[in-house]
């Protein structure tokens, strides 16, 4: 019965393939856990400019000899990944673009306390008294506009409610952009909802993540971004794109980008080294090249022209409490459903 033999050998092959696949995946997993045991692989989830995080990770690997696995995504994606992995935590260190999200994790007691080396050198605005959130850098939000379409540069938020910007404003979606989430929350804490309503009347729309809304202005689809993040726009300006960026004179949000160690980490030692590295001079200098504001900066100035930025003072614990309601209001005013 050769036919039977054929089927038999084929099925044996398949079971073997399936088995070896599962075994391979398993043993692969074990191999990495084994490695993690002797602090060889650190898992970092980072939001923010990917070239920068690649550079930081490479520098850290070279300096410490510890291997780093990274996941790059928006703040929203990182938080959701964290949630999905709740029963089997993978991440050791998080770098987020939203301070409110960091404080949220802090209030849920998910973070490890650590007295980092350079923590006292941080700008007073960025210090965390509990030593859990390490605001190694910051970015400000403002107005990104297309210079081919807009002849006179906007100077303040109110300029965007004029006829020039009718139906051509876009706002980064707080669901994906951490900095937008914080901006929308903090702006409402300072000034309420009336401005949002004026924006809606002027035809402003919620767009996608930071890069998507910037792209819309770069390609001329929209004229300006309300609450766009500065470092991305400045990088595009330096590349020669025909856009401009304004820090509103009435003030804006300078949003710390917190790094943190998760309590569930199995590699606390390596994670602590990573935090120290983030606060080291090497990284703090690299931040300037990506047009981020270094956490150790004495004064908050524009990475574009070193002009001082007028920044809101924020109590982040209050901000965390107000967050949900303010985002809901935002979606009610500007949302589509």
């Amino acid at each position: 019965m050769p036919n039977k033999k054929i089927v038999l050998s084929l099925s044996a092959l398949a079971v073997l393939a399936l088995g070896s696949g599962v075994y391979f995946a398993n043993s692969h997993g074990q191999a990495t856990t084994a490695k993690q045991g002797d602090t060889k692989t650190l898992t970092v989830y980072a939001a923010g400019p990917k070239p920068l995080s690649d550079k930081i990770v490479k520098g850290f690997e070279k300096k410490s000899g510890i291997k780093v696995k990274t996941f790059d995504g928006t703040t929203g994606k990182i938080l959701s990944k964290l949630k999905a992995e709740e029963s089997n935590p993978q991440a050791d260190v998080l770098v987020l673009a939203s301070m409110a999200a960091g404080v949220d994790l802090q209030t849920h007691k998910k973070l490890l306390t650590y007295d980092a080396k350079n923590v006292d050198q941080l700008n007073a605005q960025f210090k965390d008294s509990k030593h859990q959130l390490f605001n190694y850098s910051a970015s400000a939000v403002g107005i990104t506009y297309n210079t081919k379409e807009v002849k006179t540069a906007p100077t303040d938020w109110a300029d965007l409610t004029t006829e020039t910007y009718k139906n051509s404003l876009t706002i980064p979606d707080p669901k994906t952009s951490g900095s937008s989430l914080d901006f929308i929350n903090v702006y409402q804490m300072q000034h309420g909802q009336s401005y949002l309503k004026q924006l809606k009347q002027n035809g402003a729309e919620i767009g996608g993540a930071n890069k998507e809304v910037l792209d819309a202005v770069v390609t001329g689809q929209k004229k300006a971004v309300v609450g766009g993040v500065d470092y991305m726009s400045i990088a595009a300006i330096k590349k020669g794109e025909k856009i401009g960026f304004t820090y509103p004179k009435s003030g804006t949000l300078v949003n710390p980008r917190p790094a943190m160690i998760l309590k569930s980490t199995k590699h606390a030692a390596a994670a602590k080294q990573f935090i120290d590295y983030l606060l080291s001079d090497t990284v703090q200098k690299q931040l300037k090249k990506s047009y981020l504001i270094p956490g150790t900066a004495d004064k908050l100035t524009s990475p574009l022209n070193n002009a001082p930025i007028k920044s809101y003072t924020v109590n982040w614990n209050d901000a965390n409490k107000a967050l949900e309601a303010n985002i809901k209001k935002f979606n009610q005013v500007l949302g589509h459903d």
Binding site: V22, F24, A25, N26, G29, A84, E85, S87, N88
Partner: peptide
């Protein structure tokens, strides 16, 4: 995702490439 992160969490396969495969 549900299957491997909740019911088969003990296999520790979730978060590895094998689920994607």
């Amino acid at each position: 995702m549900i299957f491997f992160s909740q019911l088969l969490a003990f296999t520790k396969l979730y978060g590895t490439i094998s689920v994607l495969i």
